[in-house]
Design a binder for these strands. Structure first.
Length: 682
DNA sequence: CTAGGGTTAG
């Protein structure tokens, strides 16, 4: 009875209506259709094909294969005089079955059915091609394509082309796309709008931007999909400005944007951090009344967060009627990247406790929040959660774990995660190299880099940044210079300012201040703030007032409002005992009106956050704390630790000769702390 | 045939 009801109810609707009605079948182990119910009662061939296609799209393998089994039990439905009457009608059903297996990814069933089918047409062959390609069995998929052309049973059509093109989603398929493009022309499909759309999409996914543009320019006719494919393709290739330009061009034309177009344009605004444009699109969405679609809301929240406006993002979040994994991840990352790291972590815990489905994306996002000042406890819990949920295969999650452990101080656990990974991408390698670098193990960092090369993984600019960082902290100056040379000569990666700053830092730390200065002077590009800061920092370490002054002057030119050059110079003079110069520097700093934001630290003890600044004695237990600190410092001095000059000037603990406070669980500017406590975000 | 989120350096 139940099945009859379902069939009668479903048939008139479009497949997208099926999901809620069919959902009980997803989990049910087996659904037995009483053989008498099928198909004589209510279903004709079109009904069945609709139902099968819905089963495939929703992944209801059990329902789909139950329908198949009822065919096997009632073979008479394929008789010309009974069931489907016409062999063409029967073929539609056969093809729908194929499509169901293809979408469910059960390729053995798919092949078996295809081989057993009494007849096949182009749709059958296309389904085979798409089934294998969708499941990334490229050789088999292309083999079917070759076979259908060679045997001449069926000539391919435009659907074949779009099927193959949609499988081409990376640079490695560039040549396939070009081949297909050739076939398009040879077979006269160039006026077919869907084919053009597919070509655009595939070219952009393969990174062939100019080819994608050309297809667009040469198209005979363009619809929403054409424009949207173009706008989103440009976004995927980080050409945000061009993307927004095209969006504007589209709006002044005759084709109307749809939700998807707006989504892509919002992503472009996020990429550009273009708040004004983002707001304008928000306004357009209001006018259209589609501002509260879940996808749109997620995209808006993302845009506001990336533009540094979490408050607006939070407002949307609070007013949203629906939430899902994506929108929660968006707000989590938004909080984290706008200085609310603790809130982001708390948000995650709350979400978990309230039973929200946690997906791999969300896990990797929360792992990205962990920094030096985080205790390992929560990180380990997240690790165990990822094991329970079987997310170990996911590169993003594992990479996040590597970073989390290394930032929280457990280098060996990072290495374990790395070793256990079955699939590694370049970020996995970069993360592990960075982990060794962070822990001062330059040798293992370099060793891992060699391994990476022998595995055939191409290093990226970040790889070299980590390597330079590693060399810098271990004093491997020559090796570092070699790394820089290799980066440009062997891999053709153009160094960014960060790379140069790293080299300056490396030379400077090693005490080669003159070499660092010469290096900067020989740079092919104008040195930026980072470079000068690195030089000045090195001068602070070594107490070099002459080069320090040079660097500080350059820095003042670059960032006149910054207090860094003045403070650093004052510290250098202090360390050299040049009291007059120190006083003069501080006086000038005050005259010009720049001031250093007070550094603030905080620690969370039993869910209460305690904040303190330099020489802070406001806390009721301050004396006891300083007592402990002094004891710790005695121990450090015994171990041979030499307090740095910079910290000496800023921090004095009681009236002892040494000073320092490294005992923090968080640090930053007072401004940041203020915004943390005054915000309503909890 | 177009579509919202995630991991790396400092």
């Amino acid at each position: 009875m139940k099945s009859q009801w379902i069939f009668k109810t479903l048939v008139p609707h479009s497949p997208s209506c099926f999901s809620s009605i069919l959902s009980p079948f997803k989990t049910q182990k087996l659904y037995q259709f009483p053989s008498s119910d099928l198909p004589k009662i209510v279903l004709n061939h079109l009904d069945l094909s609709l139902l099968l296609s819905a089963s495939g799209k929703q992944g209801y393998f059990l329902l789909g294969s139950s329908i198949h089994s009822s065919f096997i039990k009632n073979p008479e439905i394929f008789n010309p005089n009974e069931g489907f009457k016409d062999s063409n009608n029967a073929l539609v059903v056969w093809n729908s079955l194929l499509g169901m297996y293809s979408r469910c990814g059960t390729l053995t069933d798919l092949t078996k059915l295809f081989d057993e089918m009494p007849m096949r047409d182009t749709v059958s062959w296309n389904t085979m091609v798409s089934g294998f390609l969708r499941n990334r069995e490229f050789d088999k998929g292309f083999a079917y394509f070759k076979q259908m052309r060679k045997l001449g049973f069926c000539w391919f059509d435009q659907a074949t082309l779009t099927t193959i093109l949609s499988a081409c989603d990376g640079v490695e398929f560039c040549y396939v796309v070009k081949m297909m493009h050739g076939l398009v022309f040879l077979n006269g499909f160039e006026k077919e709008i869907s084919v053009g759309n597919s070509l655009i999409t595939s070219y952009f996914k393969c990174g062939c931007v100019s080819s994608g543009r050309r297809v667009f320019d040469e198209m005979f006719e363009r619809n929403v999909i054409t424009w949207t494919a173009m706008i989103s393709g440009l976004v995927q290739n980080e050409l945000y400005e061009e993307s927004l330009g095209l969006f504007n061009q589209m709006r002044s034309g005759s084709v109307c944007p749809n939700s998807l177009t707006y989504l892509s344009s919002l992503t472009a605004c996020s990429g550009l951090q273009a708040l004004a444009e983002g707001r304008q699109i928000h306004g357009l969405l209001w006018k259209l009344g589609i501002q509260s679609e879940l996808c749109i809301e997620s995209s808006l929240m993302d845009m506001y967060s990336k533009c540094g406006n979490v408050n607006d993002a939070w407002r949307i979040f609070e007013s949203a009627q629906d939430l899902d994994e994506v929108s929660m991840t968006v707000i989590l990352v938004g909080l984290a990247q706008n200085g609310f790291e603790e809130e982001a972590k708390r948000f995650f815990v709350k979400m978990f406790e309230s039973g929200t489905e946690i997906d791999p994306n969300m896990l990797s996002a929360v792992l990205g929040v962990f920094g030096e000042d985080t205790s390992l406890g929560l990180g380990k819990q997240i690790h165990s959660l990822s094991i329970k949920r079987n997310f170990g295969f996911n590169c993003y999650v594992s990479n996040g774990l590597i970073n989390m452990y290394s930032k929280c101080g457990d280098l060996e656990e990072s290495a374990k995660v790395f070793t256990r990974m079955s699939q590694r991408n370049s970020i996995s390698w970069n993360s592990m190299i960075a982990a060794f670098a962070r822990h001062g193990d330059g040798c293992r960092a370099l060793q891992l880099y060699e391994e990476m090369r022998s595995e055939g993984i191409a290093p990226t600019d970040v790889t070299f940044l980590s390597l330079l960082h590693a060399c810098s902290h271990v004093g491997l100056v020559e090796k570092g210079m070699e790394v820089l040379k290799m980066m440009t000569d062997v891999y053709g990666i153009i160094p960014r300012a960060e790379h140069y700053a790293c080299v300056v830092d490396m030379l400077g730390r090693a005490g080669l201040l003159n070499e660092a200065k010469t290096f900067i002077e020989g740079l092919p590009v104008k040195p930026d703030v980072l470079v000068w800061q690195a030089l000045l920092g090195a001068c602070s370490i070594h107490g070099d007032s002459e080069i320090g002054k040079y660097a500080a002057n350059q820095l003042v030119l670059e960032t006149p409002e910054s207090s860094v050059p003045y403070v650093s110079m004052a510290n250098i003079y202090f360390s050299r005992g040049k009291w007059k110069e120190r006083a003069k520097t501080i006086k000038r700093m005050k005259e010009i009106g720049v001031s250093k934001e007070t550094g603030i630290s905080w620690i969370e003890i039993e869910k209460k956050v305690h904040t303190f600044v330099v020489q802070d004695r406001m806390h009721p237990q301050a004396e006891a704390m300083y007592g402990v600190l002094e004891e710790l410092l005695e121990l450090m001095l015994d171990e041979g630790y030499v307090p740095g000059y910079v910290t000496l000037t800023r921090v004095r603990v009681s009236d002892k000769k040494y000073s320092n406070t490294c005992w923090t669980h968080g640090h930053g500017s007072s401004k940041k702390m203020k915004s943390r406590s005054s915000s309503g975000v909890r």
